Simulated scan of single mutants.
Amino acid sequence: MDRKERKVVISLSVIVLILLLGGLVVPINVGAPSDTRTILDHTTQNYVSPSCIDDAEVTNYLQETTYGHALSLDYDAESSCSAEFYQESDVPLFVAMLQMIGVSEQKWSEEDMLHSETE
């Protein structure tokens, strides 16, 4: 291996190492999957997580749907409880990628997901 090839290999190795270390250190916020169960209050145009519904101030014009649908309607979180439920903070970038491909567990369990009746 000549000098030029050795420099290229070393440079690529350093770049890969920096990316790996950065992926373990750089924190990001991860949002809930779009099919996470959500309760909409159409009167106030807010969404509430099922775990926060007992303490929420909601009307009787409610609908159970998905988090993705709530975001598409541009509804706001009813409280900080709901906002925190749908966000996971300070997750290392590498861990977030593993969660996306299903290798690592997410904050949201299978029970938190809304599945259609046809499945």
Rank of each mutant, 00 (worst) to 15 (best):
S89T: 05
S80C: 09
A70P: 11
L62S: 08
Y86I: 00
A96L: 04
L71T: 05
S72W: 02
A77K: 02
S79H: 08
Q63I: 12
L62M: 12
S89V: 08
T66D: 04
Y67C: 02
D74V: 13
E88N: 02
S80P: 15
S80R: 15
T59Y: 08
Y67M: 07
E88M: 03
Y61S: 07
T65G: 03
F85C: 05
A96M: 07
L73W: 00
A83W: 11
Y75Q: 03
N60K: 11
H69V: 06
F94S: 04
V91G: 00
E78L: 15
S80N: 13
A77V: 10
L71Q: 07
E84G: 00
S82Y: 06
E78D: 15
L71N: 04
S80E: 09
D90F: 11
N60Q: 04
L93N: 13
Q63S: 05
F94H: 03
L62P: 13
S80K: 15
E88W: 03
Y86P: 01
P92C: 04
D76F: 09
T59N: 15
S80H: 13
N60I: 11
D76Y: 07
L93W: 08
A83E: 12
A70G: 03
E78A: 13
S72P: 11
D76K: 08
Y75I: 12
A70F: 04
Y61P: 10
S80V: 14
Y61I: 13
T65K: 02
V95P: 02
T65Y: 01
L73V: 00
A83I: 10
P92S: 04
G68P: 10
S72Y: 10
E84L: 03
L71G: 06
